[in-house]
Amino acid sequence: MNDSHLSAESILQAVAGDAPRNLQRAPLEIRTLKSGALTALTWVMAVLASIPLFSVIYMLLVEGGSRLDWEALTALPPSAFEAGGGFGNAIIGTLVMVGIATLISVPIGILASVYLAILDPNSKLAQTARFLAKVLTGFPSILAGVFVYATMVVTMKSYSALAGGMALAVLMLPTVILAAEQAMMMVPKKMKDAAFGMGCTRTQVIWNVVLPTGMPGILTGVMLAVAGAAGESAPLLFTALFSNYYLSSLTEPTASLSILIFNFSGMPYDNQIELAWAASLVLVLIVLVLNVVARFVGRQKF
């Protein structure tokens, strides 16, 4: 006992040259000050970064909350000097077009990412597709609108919800592909080996192991894409345009919250401006609710 104590002391002496006299914190030492300052800096930056988000939500609640009632959610948009009114048709239009976009982009995106992540990750085709998907994430959204205008609106001779959904799908696709690919690549190789070892075909490995295990990540990507699409206005200007009436057919011009906000916020009437605020709040709430639902449905169960 005595011996080991002695030797420990001699090691300390060999290292420090002297036995340590004081092991307490020294608050004024340079290292401590630096560490404290940097910690404070990161804290301040974190607060700064969340200021825009919280101030936007605060503004929306203050400005839009007062007009958010049943009438606003269900009525049709008012004309210039009319009082009251709402944006029920725009809510439905946005939901329908985002729905169409999701139905188009999710199956294509997930199947494409299965190819990129599992079937042949290093092939020329996969490398090209991955590169193009990355390029497409930075694609100006208005160009997606122009593209669909040229291909669908011109040929169908009408602005429509279908064209709007298609334009949003073009914008959602790269986000879905890249997020789903990442999620599938994160599935541990040993799990895939286990499935192959059980005598699974490749399809069964993907269907029974890779997709369920990667589901939370895939859904996160889909939700990011949905949230982005729900707020887009530029691509809808050329494709769905707007309508003052409820949606009755997918091949007619269709209202959307983002275009309504754009139109009403520029008008010189208080009623319309208030409705634009309320519609903005509703748009944020829709994205929030979809997010919570998707997280609940796709949470990692095991």
Binding site: M191, D193, A194, A195, G197, T213, Q300
Partner: peptide, 9 residues
């Protein structure tokens, strides 16, 4: 296998 590899089920 060498590493236990249960599925996340």
């Amino acid at each position: 296998f060498q590493q236990p590899n249960p599925f996340s089920m």
